[in-house]
Each structure stands twice: as C-alpha cells, then as structure tokens.
C-alpha cells in the first residue's frame, strides 16, 4: 500500500517536474525565464520549496541568492505550503473602506488565525491580496478560488466554517 502510494507520488512528481521543465524549455533555459518558471513551480506545487528553487537555479544558471531574492521580492510567491483551504481577503481600497478590518478580526477571533498565516492543524490559510479587481463587489473574499462579493464578517465566518467541514 505504502509503496504503491510512493510510486504514485513519484509519478505525480514526475508530471509536475515535466511542467516546470517545459516552461524552462519554452524559454530556452534563459536566466530571464526565472519568474515565469517560478510561476509554474508555484502553480503545480502550490508553493516554492527549497528543493525546487535550487533545481530552477541550477537549470537556468542563476545564482542561488538571486533566485531566493526574486522569490521573496514578489508577494505573489509563497515559500510556505498553504493550508488545505484558503480564504483570500481582498484589502483593496474599496474593500478596506467597506469593512475589511472587521472581516480579519472576525477570522482571528473565530479561527485563531492571523492574516498571512495558516492554522495549526494546517486546515486553513487566511491570506490577503492587494486588490483582486472586484471593487464593484466590495468587500470581496476568495474562498478556495471562488470569489464572493459584498460579504460581511458573519458571512465570511459561515463560509469558512462550511469549507472546514468538508
């Protein structure tokens, strides 16, 4: 059983690795492709782990410190794995003046998690985004990739509660 899983994991990893390789190949393994490649890594692995950063550095012949510097410069990239579920709270201006602080404090009180962090049981990550461009529906929160507009703290707590029950 365990071995089967490992094999499956290895196969899955291979597939993901191929996607990363494909991106680098498309750009002729140019050092310029660093950010594009990091996008692919994050897309397929969910975050940028040390191993992949080193792999990308080596493949594109970019110094390690430079790769790390780029990966930490852009806030879209995360070097930590996310929780099983995510709630991305938009903190754009329109959302902010329509009550983002209340939403964040409701999440803090109810699920004991600060913005940018993951709960201890690894079930929920609360993230913030600098405007997701849904200002017309402010305030907006993205629950596991699904945008919800005109939310209130109560709605957010209820939706997150439902996510966690799944």
């Amino acid at each position: 059983m365990e071995q089967g899983n490992k094999k499956k994991n290895a196969a899955a990893k291979d597939k993901r690795q191929k996607l990363v390789d494909a991106t680098m190949r498309r750009h002729g393994h140019s050092p310029y492709a660093l950010i594009e490649t990091l996008h692919t890594v994050q897309e397929v692995y969910g975050y940028l782990d040390d191993e992949n950063l080193k792999y990308v550095a080596e493949s594109l012949r970019v110094p390690l410190s430079k790769v790390y510097g780029v990966a930490t410069f852009y806030h879209f990239f995360t070097l930590k794995p996310q929780g099983e579920h995510t709630a991305v709270v938009c903190t754009g201006t329109a959302c902010y003046i329509k009550g983002v602080p209340g939403i964040l404090s409701a999440l803090r009180e109810k699920f004991f998690v600060e913005a940018g962090e993951t709960t201890e049981d690894n079930k929920l990550s609360v993230l913030t985004a600098r405007c997701i461009g849904s200002c017309g529906l402010a305030p907006a929160v993205v629950f596991d990739g699904e945008i919800a507009g005109a939310v209130t703290p109560d709605i957010v707590v209820e939706r997150v509660g439902r996510l966690l029950e799944q």
Binding site: D50, S65, G69
Partner: peptide, 25 residues
C-alpha cells in the same frame, strides 16, 4: 557578483523588510 563573480550575496524581501542574504538565506 561583479568582481568576484560568485554572487553569494543578494537581497531578500523588499521595502523595510529587505535584508542581505547568503545563498538561500
């Protein structure tokens, strides 16, 4: 980077959080 050519040092993060790092921090 420019003289020694080893590029061991770089900057991580940005803004007031920026910091000099060696290799992968």
């Amino acid at each position: 980077d420019e003289i020694e050519g080893s590029h061991t040092l770089d900057i991580k993060g940005r803004g007031i959080e920026a910091q000099v790092i060696t290799d992968m921090d």
